[in-house]
């Protein structure tokens, strides 16, 4: 337990030192999407009787919770390849669970901060949605899954450049295709089936449903739990891979 706290506390101490920079960084992309897509381009568009801004904000919550929790991979890689701090954890008498859980919780904390930033921005744009427990549960499960994936991939890559490539090929396409900016139902059936493989598609569906005050379906939540557990187990296995 102390090992887990130590790993998490380290990340939080660093986050505290970078707090305002990090917060500003979290606001830039959502603000640009809100201005360009939500306000300027999507002003007249309506989906299911809702404005595009209302449609977009839950998608941005899903996307930001993914990108910010996955962003922990970059910090882990910098700590591993440039600062060698990862060796301090490897040489300590702590289990892989403590290390992975500490890093995953740090990723989830960053995701929660990013969601809070989007909620503040949505208020500035005059959008009020339902921000009840189902929305938060979906966002937390989404960030848990992607933080666990981040740890797993950060352990597997051999350089920081590999990490950037994974982000380009995995996270960026998912951010645009996972039901964040448009309804997946508008695509052909074969495309919908392909996008159903992406965890973010289910996160967007759950978060948007909860934000619109609808009774949530159980499947998106179960899928996020299953994916999160699978990525967490993968992360536990990959920590040993990093010992060479």
């Amino acid at each position: 337990m102390q090992g887990f706290i130590a790993v998490y506390l380290r990340e939080m101490r660093i986050l505290k030192r970078r707090f305002w920079r990090q917060l500003a960084g979290m606001a830039v992309s959502p603000l640009l999407y809100l201005i360009a897509l939500g306000y300027a381009m999507g002003g007249a568009a309506r989906f299911d009787g809702r404005s595009y801004l209302e449609f977009l904000i839950p998608g941005l919550i899903a996307m930001s919770s993914m990108t910010q929790s996955f962003g922990i991979a970059t910090d882990i890689n910098v700590a591993r390849f440039y600062w060698y701090i990862f060796e301090e954890f490897q040489a300590a008498p702590i289990g892989n669970v403590a290390y992975v859980a500490g890093e995953v919780l740090a990723g989830m904390t960053r995701a929660l901060m990013a969601i809070a930033v989007i909620l503040v921005l949505s208020l500035l744009f005059g959008v009020r949605l339902h921000y009840g427990p189902w929305l938060w549960l979906a966002a937390l499960l989404n960030s848990f899954a992607f933080a666990a994936l981040a740890v797993a991939l950060a352990m597997l890559v051999k350089s920081h450049a590999d990490q950037s490539m994974l982000t380009s090929f995995v996270i960026t396409p998912m951010a645009f295709l996972g039901g964040t900016f448009f309804p997946v139902e508008r695509l052909p059936q074969w495309a919908q089936k392909m996008l159903a493989v992406l965890p973010l598609t289910h996160a967007s569906e759950a978060i948007r449903g909860a934000a619109f005050g609808e009774t949530p379906g159980v499947w998106p939540y179960l899928i996020l739990v299953a994916v999160g557990v699978a990525f967490f187990v993968l992360a536990l296995g990959t920590v040993n891979q990093a010992r060479d």
């Binding site: 380290r10 101490r13 700590a79 060698y84 701090i85 060796e87």
Partner: peptide, 14 residues
Amino acid sequence: CGLVPQHVNLDSEL
């Protein structure tokens, strides 16, 4: 055991 590695592996932001 305690370890002092060859390269500096302190957290420079802390």
